[in-house]
């Protein structure tokens, strides 16, 4: 697809891109720390991934191949519109296949296929501050990060243990990056948290509402908070995917009729389709 006339490459002006690029570099240098940046209006509403898009627009080049997922799926409204936005404004190639992508913008999932060192994953982040619901004042949360004062979050997780007998937090599960900064992994299911630890790909995070950028460089330690007697655990299912039969991927529950019948299917559509294609290949 050719580039849209009248706009700069990848929509944002060069001055804005430089400002965001400087913020990204500082974010990379201080893993897990939230760098403020001058967020711009994007031609779609806040909450639709404007933070992630501004990071993508500042990073993307003519040779990149972009994949965009929303809850693991390439074919949902948010993913389709962001993918088409960059196809039109930057003229880049797009793909739905994880292995073919050089840039992956994601809303709330990490692909099941492990990412490689030459890929960059960009997360859309609604609330960048993991301590925000515990302490509403930015001046205070800044101090808590400065002093590495994260006891309040341990108390929040302990309240889960006291009320439910286990840590009930299931998404946006707080992590400690490089043993220093507490970070929101964005609302990915905690199933995906272990994939962030020492991931070979660079991870960038953009929060449009809060105007924050943060990053995790490749091969960086990302630990999910837990207790010695209540170690971190990911979700598990009794069922397998109704389409590809996978018993080890993140499954979505799909209600199929008014009687509450349901099936479980892979949330990662590319991974699921890949498994189906592989099983349909003629066996030699």
């Amino acid at each position: 697809m050719s580039q849209t006339e009248g706009y700069n490459f990848a929509y944002l002006d060069e001055q804005t891109k430089r400002m965001i690029r400087r913020a990204i570099l500082k974010g990379v240098a201080i893993p897990g720390y939230q760098v403020p940046f001058g967020g711009r209006e994007m031609p779609l509403p806040h909450g639709w991934g404007t933070g992630g898009m501004q990071v993508t627009a500042s990073v993307i080049g003519a040779d990149d191949r972009l994949k965009v997922i929303d809850q693991g799926a390439d074919d949902t409204t948010n993913a389709v519109s962001i993918r088409r936005f960059f196809a039109r404004t930057a003229g880049v190639e797009t793909t739905e296949r994880t292995v073919e992508a050089s840039l992956i913008q994601t809303r709330h999932r990490i692909p099941e296929t492990p990412l490689s060192n030459d890929q960059i994953i960009i997360y859309q982040v609604p609330v960048s501050e993991p301590l925000r619901f515990i302490e509403p004042r930015e001046t205070e949360t800044r101090k808590m990060h400065a002093l590495r004062e994260y006891g309040a979050m341990q108390v929040k997780l302990y309240e889960d243990v006291a009320r439910f007998g286990h840590i009930a937090t299931s998404y946006d599960y707080p992590v400690l990056v490089n043993d220093r900064y507490m970070m929101s992994p964005s609302p990915i299911p905690k199933f995906d948290n272990p994939k962030m630890d020492r991931m070979p790909a660079l991870q960038l995070f953009g929060a449009g509402f809060e105007k924050r950028i943060y990053a995790v460089p490749p091969y960086t330690s990302v630990k999910s908070l837990d207790f010695d007697d209540h170690p971190f655990e990911v979700q598990q299912w009794q069922e397998s995917c109704a389409i590809c039969g996978s018993d080890h991927s993140f499954l979505d529950e799909v209600i199929t009729d008014d009687n509450g019948s349901k099936i479980y299917v892979c949330s990662d559509t590319d991974y699921c389709a890949g498994r189906v294609a592989a099983s349909e290949e003629p066996q030699q």
Binding site: N8, F9, E14, K17, R18, R21, I24, L25, V28, A29, S58, V59, I60, G61, A62, L202, A215, P217, P218
Partner: peptide
């Protein structure tokens, strides 16, 4: 080409800074 060359430079620098 200020737009493309700045982007190429940034990606070089981003790779260098992240590794």
């Amino acid at each position: 080409d200020p737009v493309q060359d700045s982007q190429t430079l940034f990606r070089t620098l981003l790779k260098a800074m992240s590794e």
